[in-house]
Protein backbone atom coordinates (compact mmCIF):
# COMPACT_ATOMS: atom_id res chain seq x y z
CA UNK A 1 0.00 0.00 0.00
CA UNK A 2 2.80 2.34 0.97
CA UNK A 3 4.53 1.56 -2.27
CA UNK A 4 1.44 2.63 -4.29
CA UNK A 5 1.21 5.92 -2.46
CA UNK A 6 4.82 6.71 -3.40
CA UNK A 7 4.14 5.82 -7.06
CA UNK A 8 1.09 8.07 -7.13
CA UNK A 9 3.05 10.96 -5.62
CA UNK A 10 5.81 10.55 -8.18
CA UNK A 11 3.32 10.53 -11.06
CA UNK A 12 1.61 13.67 -9.73
CA UNK A 13 4.97 15.37 -9.37
CA UNK A 14 5.84 14.41 -12.92
CA UNK A 15 2.59 15.82 -14.23
CA UNK A 16 3.14 19.03 -12.34
CA UNK A 17 6.59 19.36 -13.87
CA UNK A 18 5.06 19.26 -17.32
CA UNK A 19 2.60 22.02 -16.55
CA UNK A 20 3.26 25.28 -18.53
CA UNK A 21 2.91 28.48 -16.64
CA UNK A 22 2.09 31.83 -18.30
CA UNK A 23 4.89 34.34 -17.67
CA UNK A 24 3.56 37.84 -17.15
CA UNK A 25 5.33 40.88 -18.58
CA UNK A 26 6.78 43.13 -15.88
CA UNK A 27 4.20 45.79 -15.39
CA UNK A 28 5.07 47.52 -12.19
CA UNK A 29 4.47 51.29 -11.96
CA UNK A 30 6.98 53.72 -13.47
CA UNK A 31 8.97 55.80 -11.03
CA UNK A 32 10.89 59.01 -11.67
CA UNK A 33 13.81 60.31 -9.68
CA UNK A 34 16.55 62.91 -10.00
CA UNK A 35 19.85 61.33 -10.89
CA UNK A 36 23.25 62.32 -9.50
CA UNK A 37 21.83 63.55 -6.28
CA UNK A 38 24.23 62.44 -3.61
CA UNK A 39 22.63 64.27 -0.76
CA UNK A 40 19.08 63.57 -1.73
CA UNK A 41 18.54 67.07 -3.03
CA UNK A 42 19.86 67.99 -6.41
CA UNK A 43 20.67 71.67 -6.44
CA UNK A 44 22.04 74.23 -8.86
CA UNK A 45 23.36 77.60 -7.81
CA UNK A 46 24.06 80.56 -10.07
CA UNK A 47 24.14 84.30 -10.21
CA UNK A 48 22.54 86.30 -12.99
CA UNK A 49 25.56 88.59 -12.72
CA UNK A 50 27.56 85.85 -14.49
CA UNK A 51 25.20 86.06 -17.47
CA UNK A 52 25.18 89.73 -18.40
CA UNK A 53 22.24 90.70 -20.56
CA UNK A 54 20.21 87.65 -19.65
CA UNK A 55 16.91 88.23 -17.87
CA UNK A 56 16.16 84.55 -17.51
CA UNK A 57 18.38 81.51 -17.14
CA UNK A 58 17.70 77.78 -17.34
CA UNK A 59 19.00 75.38 -14.73
CA UNK A 60 19.22 71.81 -16.02
CA UNK A 61 18.72 68.55 -14.17
CA UNK A 62 18.74 64.90 -15.14
CA UNK A 63 15.54 63.03 -14.42
CA UNK A 64 15.64 59.23 -14.60
CA UNK A 65 13.08 56.48 -14.98
CA UNK A 66 12.76 53.24 -13.03
CA UNK A 67 10.53 50.76 -14.79
CA UNK A 68 9.88 49.92 -18.41
CA UNK A 69 10.45 52.70 -20.93
CA UNK A 70 7.21 53.97 -22.31
CA UNK A 71 6.13 53.45 -25.89
CA UNK A 72 5.02 57.05 -26.19
CA UNK A 73 5.95 60.34 -24.58
CA UNK A 74 4.37 60.48 -21.16
CA UNK A 75 3.56 63.56 -19.17
CA UNK A 76 5.02 64.00 -15.71
CA UNK A 77 4.43 66.65 -13.11
CA UNK A 78 6.36 68.68 -10.61
CA UNK A 79 5.10 70.67 -7.70
CA UNK A 80 6.71 73.46 -5.72
CA UNK A 81 7.61 72.63 -2.15
CA UNK A 82 6.47 75.84 -0.49
CA UNK A 83 8.14 75.09 2.81
CA UNK A 84 11.50 74.81 1.02
CA UNK A 85 11.07 77.82 -1.28
CA UNK A 86 11.95 81.48 -0.75
CA UNK A 87 11.66 82.63 -4.37
CA UNK A 88 8.58 84.54 -5.41
CA UNK A 89 6.36 83.12 -8.11
CA UNK A 90 7.67 85.75 -10.53
CA UNK A 91 11.24 84.53 -9.97
CA UNK A 92 10.70 81.28 -11.81
CA UNK A 93 8.44 79.65 -14.35
CA UNK A 94 6.41 76.69 -13.29
CA UNK A 95 7.25 73.92 -15.77
CA UNK A 96 4.21 72.93 -17.78
CA UNK A 97 3.55 70.03 -20.13
CA UNK A 98 6.61 68.09 -19.09
CA UNK A 99 7.10 64.99 -21.20
CA UNK A 100 9.29 62.01 -20.52
CA UNK A 101 10.37 60.76 -23.94
CA UNK A 102 9.32 57.37 -25.25
CA UNK A 103 11.91 54.61 -25.16
CA UNK A 104 14.25 56.54 -22.82
CA UNK A 105 15.27 56.05 -19.25
CA UNK A 106 16.88 59.46 -18.83
CA UNK A 107 15.67 62.92 -19.70
CA UNK A 108 16.61 66.52 -19.02
CA UNK A 109 14.51 68.93 -17.09
CA UNK A 110 15.01 72.66 -17.39
CA UNK A 111 13.86 75.12 -14.79
CA UNK A 112 13.64 78.69 -16.06
CA UNK A 113 14.46 81.36 -13.51
CA UNK A 114 13.90 85.07 -13.91
CA UNK A 115 16.43 87.59 -12.74
CA UNK A 116 14.59 90.83 -13.30
CA UNK A 117 13.38 91.46 -9.77
CA UNK A 118 15.48 94.22 -8.21
CA UNK A 119 15.70 92.48 -4.86
CA UNK A 120 17.73 89.66 -6.40
CA UNK A 121 20.68 92.04 -6.61
CA UNK A 122 21.00 91.89 -2.86
CA UNK A 123 19.12 88.76 -1.92
CA UNK A 124 19.56 85.09 -2.74
CA UNK A 125 16.45 82.96 -3.20
CA UNK A 126 15.72 79.35 -3.88
CA UNK A 127 12.89 77.30 -5.27
CA UNK A 128 12.38 73.59 -4.57
CA UNK A 129 10.47 71.24 -6.82
CA UNK A 130 9.23 67.78 -6.07
CA UNK A 131 8.09 65.04 -8.45
CA UNK A 132 4.33 64.71 -8.15
CA UNK A 133 2.50 61.47 -8.77
CA UNK A 134 0.19 61.34 -11.80
CA UNK A 135 -1.35 58.61 -13.91
CA UNK A 136 1.96 57.89 -15.61
CA UNK A 137 4.59 58.13 -12.92
CA UNK A 138 5.12 57.89 -9.21
CA UNK A 139 7.92 59.60 -7.27
CA UNK A 140 10.91 57.25 -7.19
CA UNK A 141 13.71 56.85 -4.70
CA UNK A 142 12.69 58.69 -1.59
CA UNK A 143 15.91 60.69 -1.26
CA UNK A 144 15.93 61.74 -4.90
CA UNK A 145 12.57 63.28 -5.46
CA UNK A 146 13.46 66.94 -5.07
CA UNK A 147 15.60 69.53 -6.81
CA UNK A 148 16.46 73.03 -5.77
CA UNK A 149 17.56 76.07 -7.77
CA UNK A 150 19.42 78.69 -5.76
CA UNK A 151 19.94 81.97 -7.52
CA UNK A 152 20.52 85.66 -7.18
CA UNK A 153 21.73 88.62 -9.16
CA UNK A 154 24.48 89.47 -6.73
CA UNK A 155 27.82 90.28 -8.32
CA UNK A 156 30.22 87.61 -7.13
CA UNK A 157 33.61 86.16 -7.99
CA UNK A 158 33.34 82.82 -9.76
CA UNK A 159 35.02 79.92 -8.01
CA UNK A 160 37.33 79.28 -10.98
CA UNK A 161 38.71 82.86 -10.83
CA UNK A 162 41.54 81.70 -8.62
CA UNK A 163 45.14 80.43 -8.52
CA UNK A 164 47.23 80.87 -11.69
CA UNK A 165 44.21 82.11 -13.62
CA UNK A 166 43.96 85.05 -11.25
CA UNK A 167 47.67 85.56 -10.64
CA UNK A 168 49.07 85.13 -14.16
CA UNK A 169 46.16 85.63 -16.51
CA UNK A 170 43.19 87.71 -15.37
CA UNK A 171 44.37 89.64 -12.36
CA UNK A 172 42.16 90.70 -9.49
CA UNK A 173 38.44 90.06 -9.85
CA UNK A 174 36.00 92.88 -10.16
CA UNK A 175 32.37 92.58 -11.22
CA UNK A 176 32.98 95.07 -14.00
CA UNK A 177 36.01 93.20 -15.29
CA UNK A 178 34.12 89.93 -15.28
CA UNK A 179 31.18 91.46 -17.08
CA UNK A 180 33.45 92.80 -19.84
CA UNK A 181 35.32 89.51 -20.01
CA UNK A 182 32.08 87.72 -20.79
CA UNK A 183 31.12 90.30 -23.39
CA UNK A 184 34.56 90.11 -25.02
CA UNK A 185 34.97 86.36 -25.05
CA UNK A 186 31.48 84.93 -24.72
CA UNK A 187 32.81 82.77 -21.88
CA UNK A 188 31.69 82.95 -18.28
CA UNK A 189 33.26 79.74 -17.05
CA UNK A 190 36.93 78.83 -17.37
CA UNK A 191 36.70 75.76 -15.18
CA UNK A 192 39.26 73.15 -16.22
CA UNK A 193 40.69 75.27 -19.01
CA UNK A 194 44.40 75.08 -19.91
CA UNK A 195 46.59 78.10 -19.27
CA UNK A 196 47.20 78.45 -23.01
CA UNK A 197 43.46 78.60 -23.71
CA UNK A 198 42.97 81.04 -20.86
CA UNK A 199 45.84 83.13 -22.22
CA UNK A 200 44.26 83.20 -25.68
CA UNK A 201 40.88 84.25 -24.30
CA UNK A 202 42.38 86.86 -22.02
CA UNK A 203 44.50 88.33 -24.80
CA UNK A 204 41.27 88.69 -26.80
CA UNK A 205 39.83 90.36 -23.73
CA UNK A 206 42.80 92.73 -23.62
CA UNK A 207 42.30 93.66 -27.26
CA UNK A 208 38.63 94.34 -26.53
CA UNK A 209 39.53 96.54 -23.55
CA UNK A 210 42.03 98.51 -25.62
CA UNK A 211 39.77 98.93 -28.62
CA UNK A 212 36.85 100.03 -26.47
CA UNK A 213 38.94 102.07 -24.06
CA UNK A 214 37.32 100.41 -21.04
CA UNK A 215 38.16 101.98 -17.70
CA UNK A 216 38.09 100.64 -14.16
CA UNK A 217 35.35 101.77 -11.80
CA UNK A 218 37.34 104.94 -11.00
CA UNK A 219 36.75 106.04 -14.60
CA UNK A 220 40.38 106.92 -15.24
CA UNK A 221 42.46 103.73 -14.91
CA UNK A 222 42.46 101.65 -18.07
CA UNK A 223 41.11 98.23 -17.17
CA UNK A 224 43.77 96.62 -19.36
CA UNK A 225 46.41 97.72 -16.86
CA UNK A 226 45.08 95.20 -14.39
CA UNK A 227 45.39 92.21 -16.71
CA UNK A 228 48.73 90.49 -16.09
CA UNK A 229 48.65 88.12 -19.06
CA UNK A 230 51.35 88.63 -21.69
Amino acid sequence: MRKYIIYICLIIAGMCACNTEEVDVYSSPRYLFFQDSLKGLDSVKFSFSHYPGETSHDASFYIALTGLPAEEDLEYELQVVDSLTTALAEDYEMPQGLLFPAGETLSTLKIRCNGTREALKTQQVHVTFKIAANKNFSPGLSGKQMIRVIFNNIESKPLWWDGDLEKLILGAYSPNKFRHFIIATGRNDLTGISLSEARELTMQFKVYLIENNIMEDDGKTPMVNGIPVY
Binding site: S194, E200, K206, V207, Y230
Partner: peptide, 10 residues
Protein backbone atom coordinates in the same frame (compact mmCIF):
# COMPACT_ATOMS: atom_id res chain seq x y z
CA UNK B 1 53.84 71.87 -23.50
CA UNK B 2 51.48 74.79 -23.84
CA UNK B 3 50.23 76.18 -27.14
CA UNK B 4 50.98 79.15 -29.35
CA UNK B 5 48.09 81.55 -29.23
CA UNK B 6 46.63 83.39 -32.19
CA UNK B 7 46.79 86.82 -30.59
CA UNK B 8 50.25 88.28 -31.18
CA UNK B 9 52.38 89.96 -28.53
CA UNK B 10 51.22 93.34 -27.31
Amino acid sequence: SGYYIHTPLF
